[in-house]
């Protein structure tokens, strides 16, 4: 039995036993290599679920849909390791109750999709431990190194060119499980704290505000990067912030549900290198 069949059966069982009210998974998309999020509410519908190496989106963002978990019922969601980390952060930040989230875990390596046994985020503690020890993505680091080698002026020009493309569609925010504010700071308009204009300054404001808010919270799922319709390499900004919080505070986001948010806690031994 292939992994897709196995997970369809599990989803059917979860739904028919009443263990969950909803399964959030992947379905076929408008072209052969596209997958789209699907919401399955009954065992009869599980044939809509697809699981293969094209299922890359981090579906944990749907867990923060307004009201989804407020009836106390459970929801099952297909998650890769990055998504499981997102659930841990959302739990640590009191946005979801981890007991209500049933995880259908899987991993993608090349074309191979393999099951990750477990049900609740806590079951994945050993996996989180191994992710932590392997650190940040070397692939992203290689890309980031290219930028690190630039002079400050060159790097500024690079981002100026990238941000000039931004149209403030906020796809990066909307697709991100960490962007759960019911009213984002850029939407606070009495007064309008942040310019809505999508000119170079306004685009800098938006992208830097988001990068700061993601510092120590991004799991590098790449959702924002894929969602960006104008191809801004957002992964590199987020990676840089992750590297910073890992190097300074030893913080690997999402390793457990009781990990304290790095920028909302204070330790006596925190380095204070930023104080001049």
């Amino acid at each position: 039995m292939g992994i897709q069949e196995q997970y369809r059966n599990e989803a059917a069982e979860l739904l028919s036993s009443g263990a969950v009210k909803l399964v959030i998974g992947y379905g076929g998309g408008s072209t052969p290599d596209r997958r789209r999020p699907v919401f399955v509410r009954s065992a009869e519908e599980v044939s809509r679920l697809v699981l293969d190496s094209y299922c890359v989106a981090n579906l944990s963002a749907y867990l923060i849909s307004e009201g989804l978990l407020s009836d106390g019922k459970n929801v099952a969601v297909f998650l890769k390791p990055d998504g499981i980390r997102s659930v841990n952060i959302l739990s640590a930040e009191a946005q979801v109750n981890p007991d209500q989230v049933v995880i259908l875990g899987f991993n993608i390596e090349g074309e191979q999709t393999t099951p990750l046994p477990g049900r609740k985020a806590a079951d994945y503690a050993p996996l989180m431990e191994s992710l932590r020890s392997s650190g940040l993505s070397p692939e992203l680091q290689r890309e980031a190194d290219r930028l690190e080698q630039m002079s400050a002026v060159e790097r500024f020009d690079y981002w100026k060119e990238q941000f000039a493309k931004c149209i403030k569609c906020y796809a990066c925010r909307q697709v991100c499980p960490m962007c759960y504010c019911r009213r984002c700071i850029v939407d606070v308009n009495q007064p309008q704290w942040i310019n809505t204009s999508s000119h170079t300054l306004g685009n800098f404001e938006w992208n830097i505000v988001r990068a700061f808010h993601l510092a120590g919270r991004c799991v590098a799922c790449g959702g924002c990067d894929r969602a960006c319709p104008v191809n801004i390499p957002l992964r590199l900004i987020n990676h840089r912030m992750s590297k910073e919080t890992l190097d300074i505070f030893g913080h690997f986001p999402g390793e457990s549900a009781d990990q304290k948010p790095v920028l909302a806690t204070f330790r006596q031994d925190d380095p204070e290198t930023f104080i001049l």
């Binding site: 789209r36 999020p37 699907v38 919401f39 963002a61 749907y62 149209i167 403030k168 569609c169 906020y170 796809a171 925010r173 909307q174 697709v175 969602a227 319709p229």
Partner: peptide
């Protein structure tokens, strides 16, 4: 599944 971004309208 709509995430409420403005990509479709802006493009």
């Amino acid at each position: 599944r709509c995430i409420g971004c403005g990509s479709c309208t802006f493009l």
